[in-house]
C-alpha cells in the first residue's frame, strides 16, 4: 500500500522510496527517512495540500504527490 492510504495517526514501515525523484530521495535520506523506518501519518492539509509525518521522533512536512510514491506496510 502507499503512504497516503494510511489513516490519521496510523503507523507503518517504509518498504520502498525509489518511486520518488532523486532530489526528494536525497532529502528524505538526509532526514533519516529510509526503507525499514517506521513512519506515522499524522495529518494532511485540505485541497491536496501537504501531509505531516513523524519519522525517528521528528515531524516533517511532505507534499502528497511525493508521499504517494512511498510504499509502506502497516505495522
Amino acid at each position: 500500500m502507499i503512504l497516503t492510504e494510511l489513516k490519521k495517526g496510523e503507523k507503518a514501515t517504509i518498504l520502498n522510496l525509489s518511486g520518488t525523484t532523486e532530489l526528494v530521495q536525497q532529502r528524505l535520506l538526509d532526514l533519516g527517512i529510509t526503507e525499514g523506518e517506521e513512519v506515522c501519518y499524522k495529518c494532511a492539509l485540505p485541497f491536496g495540500g501537504p501531509c505531516m509525518l513523524e519519522v525517528c521522533g521528528q515531524c516533517i512536512g511532505l507534499r502528497r504527490r511525493e508521499a504517494k510514491e512511498i510504499q509502506v506496510v502497516r505495522t
Binding site: 525523484t21 532530489l23 526528494v24 532529502r27 528524505l28 532526514l31 501537504p50 505531516m52 521528528q58 515531524c59 516533517i60 512536512g61 511532505l62 507534499r63 511525493e66
Partner: peptide, 11 residues
Amino acid sequence: EHSVFIVELPP
C-alpha cells in the same frame, strides 16, 4: 522544474 517541498517541523 519539478517542484519539491520537504520541510522539517521542529518541536
